[in-house]
Amino acid sequence: MTGQSIVLAADVPFPPSVEDFYLPSILPWGEHGSYWFTKIMVLAWLSVAILIVFFLVSYRKPQLVPTKKQWLAESVYGFVRNNIAVDMIGKEGVRFAPYLTTLFSFILIMNMWAIVPLAQISPNSHIAFPIILAVISYVMFIYVGFQKHGPSYLKHALVPPAPWFILPILVPIEFFSNFIVRPFSLAVRLFANMFAGHMLLLVFTLGGFAMVSANGLLAPVSVLSWAMVVALTFLDFAVIVLQAYVFTVLTASYIQGSLAEGH
Protein backbone atom coordinates (compact mmCIF):
# COMPACT_ATOMS: atom_id res chain seq x y z
CA MET A 1 0.00 0.00 0.00
CA THR A 2 1.51 3.29 -0.99
CA GLY A 3 1.02 6.25 1.26
CA GLN A 4 -0.54 8.21 -1.53
CA SER A 5 -3.57 6.00 -2.00
CA ILE A 6 -4.19 5.90 1.74
CA VAL A 7 -4.25 9.68 1.76
CA LEU A 8 -6.51 9.57 -1.25
CA ALA A 9 -8.79 7.04 0.40
CA ALA A 10 -8.89 8.74 3.76
CA ASP A 11 -10.98 11.68 2.57
CA VAL A 12 -13.37 9.56 0.52
CA PRO A 13 -16.70 9.56 2.32
CA PHE A 14 -18.39 6.19 2.50
CA PRO A 15 -21.17 5.18 2.23
CA PRO A 16 -22.51 7.76 -0.24
CA SER A 17 -25.67 9.56 0.78
CA VAL A 18 -28.30 11.83 -0.69
CA GLU A 19 -26.02 14.71 0.26
CA ASP A 20 -23.72 13.62 -2.58
CA PHE A 21 -26.38 14.76 -5.03
CA TYR A 22 -26.21 18.32 -3.71
CA LEU A 23 -23.06 19.58 -5.34
CA PRO A 24 -21.23 22.63 -4.06
CA SER A 25 -22.39 26.00 -5.23
CA ILE A 26 -20.55 27.53 -8.18
CA LEU A 27 -21.93 31.02 -7.84
CA PRO A 28 -21.26 32.20 -5.16
CA TRP A 29 -18.26 29.90 -5.17
CA GLY A 30 -18.32 27.15 -2.56
CA GLU A 31 -21.09 28.66 -0.45
CA HIS A 32 -22.84 26.09 1.74
CA GLY A 33 -26.55 25.57 1.45
CA SER A 34 -26.86 27.57 -1.75
CA TYR A 35 -28.19 25.46 -4.59
CA TRP A 36 -29.17 28.11 -7.12
CA PHE A 37 -26.23 27.62 -9.41
CA THR A 38 -24.49 24.27 -9.21
CA LYS A 39 -23.18 21.74 -11.69
CA ILE A 40 -26.74 20.45 -12.01
CA MET A 41 -27.85 23.86 -13.25
CA VAL A 42 -24.91 24.16 -15.63
CA LEU A 43 -25.67 20.74 -17.11
CA ALA A 44 -29.37 21.54 -17.50
CA TRP A 45 -28.63 24.76 -19.40
CA LEU A 46 -25.93 23.01 -21.39
CA SER A 47 -28.47 20.37 -22.43
CA VAL A 48 -30.86 23.05 -23.64
CA ALA A 49 -28.06 24.81 -25.52
CA ILE A 50 -26.84 21.61 -27.17
CA LEU A 51 -30.36 20.71 -28.22
CA ILE A 52 -31.11 24.10 -29.76
CA VAL A 53 -27.76 24.59 -31.43
CA PHE A 54 -27.56 21.05 -32.79
CA PHE A 55 -30.95 21.06 -34.44
CA LEU A 56 -30.60 24.63 -35.74
CA VAL A 57 -27.14 24.07 -37.19
CA SER A 58 -27.84 20.67 -38.66
CA TYR A 59 -30.95 21.92 -40.41
CA ARG A 60 -29.81 25.37 -41.39
CA LYS A 61 -29.13 24.53 -45.05
CA PRO A 62 -30.87 21.23 -45.70
CA GLN A 63 -29.24 19.24 -48.48
CA LEU A 64 -30.96 16.74 -50.69
CA VAL A 65 -28.08 14.43 -49.93
CA PRO A 66 -27.84 14.99 -46.20
CA THR A 67 -24.64 15.89 -44.43
CA LYS A 68 -23.62 13.82 -41.44
CA LYS A 69 -25.21 16.20 -38.93
CA GLN A 70 -28.35 16.51 -40.97
CA TRP A 71 -28.54 12.74 -41.25
CA LEU A 72 -28.30 12.38 -37.47
CA ALA A 73 -30.95 15.01 -36.83
CA GLU A 74 -33.25 13.49 -39.41
CA SER A 75 -32.71 10.04 -37.99
CA VAL A 76 -33.66 11.13 -34.50
CA TYR A 77 -36.71 13.00 -35.75
CA GLY A 78 -37.68 10.21 -38.12
CA PHE A 79 -37.32 7.61 -35.40
CA VAL A 80 -39.55 9.46 -32.95
CA ARG A 81 -42.08 10.42 -35.62
CA ASN A 82 -42.44 7.02 -37.29
CA ASN A 83 -41.68 4.61 -34.47
CA ILE A 84 -43.26 6.46 -31.57
CA ALA A 85 -45.66 9.19 -32.71
CA VAL A 86 -47.26 7.57 -35.75
CA ASP A 87 -47.08 4.03 -34.41
CA MET A 88 -48.70 4.86 -31.09
CA ILE A 89 -51.04 7.71 -31.96
CA GLY A 90 -51.78 7.06 -35.63
CA LYS A 91 -51.94 9.61 -38.42
CA GLU A 92 -52.67 12.43 -36.01
CA GLY A 93 -49.41 11.63 -34.30
CA VAL A 94 -47.42 13.70 -36.81
CA ARG A 95 -48.83 16.76 -35.08
CA PHE A 96 -47.11 15.72 -31.85
CA ALA A 97 -43.86 14.52 -33.41
CA PRO A 98 -41.96 17.80 -32.83
CA TYR A 99 -42.85 17.84 -29.15
CA LEU A 100 -42.09 14.16 -28.69
CA THR A 101 -38.77 14.52 -30.48
CA THR A 102 -37.81 17.46 -28.29
CA LEU A 103 -38.83 15.51 -25.21
CA PHE A 104 -36.89 12.44 -26.28
CA SER A 105 -33.70 14.29 -27.18
CA PHE A 106 -33.86 16.50 -24.10
CA ILE A 107 -34.26 13.57 -21.71
CA LEU A 108 -31.58 11.65 -23.57
CA ILE A 109 -29.06 14.47 -23.28
CA MET A 110 -29.98 15.19 -19.66
CA ASN A 111 -29.61 11.51 -18.77
CA MET A 112 -26.41 11.13 -20.74
CA TRP A 113 -24.57 13.46 -18.36
CA ALA A 114 -24.64 10.60 -15.87
CA ILE A 115 -21.86 8.84 -17.75
CA VAL A 116 -20.06 11.72 -19.47
CA PRO A 117 -16.63 12.07 -17.86
CA LEU A 118 -16.32 15.12 -15.58
CA ALA A 119 -20.07 15.67 -15.58
CA GLN A 120 -21.02 12.25 -14.21
CA ILE A 121 -24.31 13.23 -12.69
CA SER A 122 -27.60 13.66 -14.44
CA PRO A 123 -29.82 16.63 -13.59
CA ASN A 124 -32.67 14.13 -13.82
CA SER A 125 -31.41 12.55 -10.61
CA HIS A 126 -33.04 15.53 -8.93
CA ILE A 127 -36.74 14.90 -8.99
CA ALA A 128 -37.60 18.51 -9.82
CA PHE A 129 -36.62 18.03 -13.47
CA PRO A 130 -38.67 14.85 -14.07
CA ILE A 131 -41.61 16.44 -12.24
CA ILE A 132 -41.68 19.40 -14.59
CA LEU A 133 -41.40 17.11 -17.63
CA ALA A 134 -44.22 14.95 -16.29
CA VAL A 135 -46.39 18.00 -15.58
CA ILE A 136 -45.95 19.15 -19.18
CA SER A 137 -47.04 15.75 -20.48
CA TYR A 138 -49.90 15.65 -17.96
CA VAL A 139 -51.31 19.04 -18.88
CA MET A 140 -50.83 18.19 -22.52
CA PHE A 141 -52.79 14.95 -22.62
CA ILE A 142 -55.63 16.44 -20.58
CA TYR A 143 -55.73 19.53 -22.79
CA VAL A 144 -55.69 17.40 -25.93
CA GLY A 145 -58.52 15.30 -24.51
CA PHE A 146 -60.72 18.30 -23.79
CA GLN A 147 -59.86 19.78 -27.17
CA LYS A 148 -60.92 16.59 -28.91
CA HIS A 149 -63.99 15.58 -26.90
CA GLY A 150 -65.06 18.74 -25.10
CA PRO A 151 -66.45 18.27 -21.59
CA SER A 152 -67.35 14.68 -22.40
CA TYR A 153 -63.62 13.93 -22.18
CA LEU A 154 -64.18 13.35 -18.48
CA LYS A 155 -66.77 10.69 -19.26
CA HIS A 156 -64.43 9.29 -21.90
CA ALA A 157 -61.55 9.08 -19.44
CA LEU A 158 -63.42 8.02 -16.33
CA VAL A 159 -66.31 5.79 -17.37
CA PRO A 160 -65.22 2.42 -18.70
CA PRO A 161 -67.52 0.21 -20.75
CA ALA A 162 -69.15 -1.77 -17.98
CA PRO A 163 -72.59 -2.44 -16.49
CA TRP A 164 -73.87 0.52 -14.49
CA PHE A 165 -73.82 -1.24 -11.12
CA ILE A 166 -70.06 -1.80 -11.17
CA LEU A 167 -69.30 1.76 -12.22
CA PRO A 168 -69.19 3.19 -8.68
CA ILE A 169 -66.32 0.81 -8.00
CA LEU A 170 -64.54 1.38 -11.30
CA VAL A 171 -64.73 5.15 -11.69
CA PRO A 172 -62.55 5.97 -8.64
CA ILE A 173 -59.99 3.48 -9.91
CA GLU A 174 -60.00 5.09 -13.34
CA PHE A 175 -59.61 8.51 -11.79
CA PHE A 176 -56.76 7.44 -9.56
CA SER A 177 -55.02 5.53 -12.32
CA ASN A 178 -55.42 8.15 -15.07
CA PHE A 179 -54.99 11.41 -13.23
CA ILE A 180 -52.86 10.62 -10.21
CA VAL A 181 -50.73 7.56 -10.90
CA ARG A 182 -49.80 8.62 -14.44
CA PRO A 183 -47.86 11.83 -13.75
CA PHE A 184 -46.49 10.39 -10.53
CA SER A 185 -45.14 7.26 -12.17
CA LEU A 186 -43.75 9.21 -15.14
CA ALA A 187 -41.74 11.47 -12.86
CA VAL A 188 -40.68 8.86 -10.34
CA ARG A 189 -39.63 6.29 -12.94
CA LEU A 190 -37.22 8.67 -14.64
CA PHE A 191 -35.94 10.16 -11.39
CA ALA A 192 -35.45 6.84 -9.62
CA ASN A 193 -33.57 5.30 -12.52
CA MET A 194 -31.14 8.19 -12.77
CA PHE A 195 -30.79 8.45 -9.00
CA ALA A 196 -30.10 4.74 -8.62
CA GLY A 197 -27.64 4.74 -11.50
CA HIS A 198 -25.59 7.51 -9.92
CA MET A 199 -25.82 5.89 -6.51
CA LEU A 200 -24.61 2.54 -7.84
CA LEU A 201 -21.60 4.10 -9.51
CA LEU A 202 -20.81 6.01 -6.31
CA VAL A 203 -21.10 2.91 -4.15
CA PHE A 204 -18.77 0.86 -6.30
CA THR A 205 -16.22 3.62 -6.88
CA LEU A 206 -16.06 4.85 -3.29
CA GLY A 207 -16.43 1.33 -1.96
CA GLY A 208 -13.21 0.40 -3.74
CA PHE A 209 -11.39 3.22 -1.95
CA ALA A 210 -13.00 2.38 1.36
CA MET A 211 -11.89 -1.26 1.17
CA VAL A 212 -8.34 -0.41 0.19
CA SER A 213 -8.02 2.04 3.04
CA ALA A 214 -9.56 -0.41 5.51
CA ASN A 215 -7.17 -3.24 4.72
CA GLY A 216 -4.45 -3.55 2.12
CA LEU A 217 -5.31 -7.21 1.61
CA LEU A 218 -8.65 -6.12 0.17
CA ALA A 219 -6.95 -4.41 -2.77
CA PRO A 220 -7.92 -7.16 -5.27
CA VAL A 221 -11.55 -6.76 -4.24
CA SER A 222 -11.21 -3.04 -4.81
CA VAL A 223 -9.97 -3.70 -8.31
CA LEU A 224 -12.95 -5.96 -8.87
CA SER A 225 -15.20 -3.20 -7.56
CA TRP A 226 -13.70 -0.71 -10.01
CA ALA A 227 -14.11 -3.20 -12.84
CA MET A 228 -17.76 -3.39 -11.85
CA VAL A 229 -17.92 0.39 -12.25
CA VAL A 230 -16.99 0.00 -15.90
CA ALA A 231 -19.63 -2.68 -16.40
CA LEU A 232 -22.24 -0.65 -14.55
CA THR A 233 -21.47 2.35 -16.70
CA PHE A 234 -22.51 0.33 -19.74
CA LEU A 235 -25.62 -0.78 -17.89
CA ASP A 236 -26.31 2.85 -17.06
CA PHE A 237 -26.01 3.72 -20.73
CA ALA A 238 -28.72 1.19 -21.54
CA VAL A 239 -30.91 2.59 -18.77
CA ILE A 240 -30.36 6.13 -20.02
CA VAL A 241 -31.54 5.38 -23.54
CA LEU A 242 -34.37 3.15 -22.35
CA GLN A 243 -35.75 5.71 -19.91
CA ALA A 244 -35.72 8.47 -22.51
CA TYR A 245 -37.59 6.11 -24.84
CA VAL A 246 -40.06 4.95 -22.18
CA PHE A 247 -40.92 8.48 -21.12
CA THR A 248 -41.61 9.45 -24.71
CA VAL A 249 -43.60 6.31 -25.48
CA LEU A 250 -45.75 6.73 -22.39
CA THR A 251 -46.45 10.37 -23.19
CA ALA A 252 -47.46 9.31 -26.69
CA SER A 253 -49.63 6.55 -25.29
CA TYR A 254 -51.42 8.96 -22.93
CA ILE A 255 -52.04 11.37 -25.82
CA GLN A 256 -53.37 8.44 -27.83
CA GLY A 257 -55.71 7.59 -24.96
CA SER A 258 -57.02 11.15 -24.96
CA LEU A 259 -57.54 11.16 -28.71
CA ALA A 260 -59.16 7.74 -29.00
CA GLU A 261 -62.74 7.58 -30.18
CA GLY A 262 -65.46 6.43 -27.82
CA HIS A 263 -65.65 2.78 -27.02
Binding site: K91, I173, E174, V181, S185, V249, A252, S253, Y254, Q256
Partner: peptide
Protein backbone atom coordinates in the same frame (compact mmCIF):
# COMPACT_ATOMS: atom_id res chain seq x y z
CA UNK B 1 -42.35 14.88 -44.78
CA UNK B 2 -45.33 12.61 -44.82
CA UNK B 3 -45.71 9.69 -42.43
CA UNK B 4 -45.26 6.23 -43.91
CA UNK B 5 -48.10 5.86 -46.44
CA UNK B 6 -49.04 2.29 -45.63
CA UNK B 7 -51.14 1.86 -42.50
CA UNK B 8 -50.08 -0.99 -40.28
CA UNK B 9 -51.02 -4.44 -41.52
CA UNK B 10 -51.52 -7.35 -39.23
CA UNK B 11 -48.20 -8.88 -40.20
CA UNK B 12 -46.32 -5.63 -39.68
CA UNK B 13 -44.22 -5.29 -36.51
CA UNK B 14 -46.39 -4.43 -33.54
CA UNK B 15 -46.22 -0.90 -32.14
CA UNK B 16 -44.37 -0.50 -28.87
CA UNK B 17 -46.66 -1.95 -26.26
CA UNK B 18 -44.92 -0.84 -23.09
CA UNK B 19 -47.67 1.75 -22.77
CA UNK B 20 -50.25 -1.00 -22.41
CA UNK B 21 -48.19 -2.84 -19.84
CA UNK B 22 -47.93 0.32 -17.77
CA UNK B 23 -51.68 0.89 -18.05
CA UNK B 24 -52.34 -2.63 -16.81
CA UNK B 25 -49.99 -2.25 -13.86
CA UNK B 26 -51.43 1.13 -12.96
CA UNK B 27 -55.00 -0.27 -12.96
CA UNK B 28 -54.02 -3.09 -10.62
CA UNK B 29 -52.15 -0.73 -8.36
CA UNK B 30 -54.89 1.89 -8.43
Amino acid sequence: QQPPPEPREDDAPQPPNSGQGMVAVSYLFA
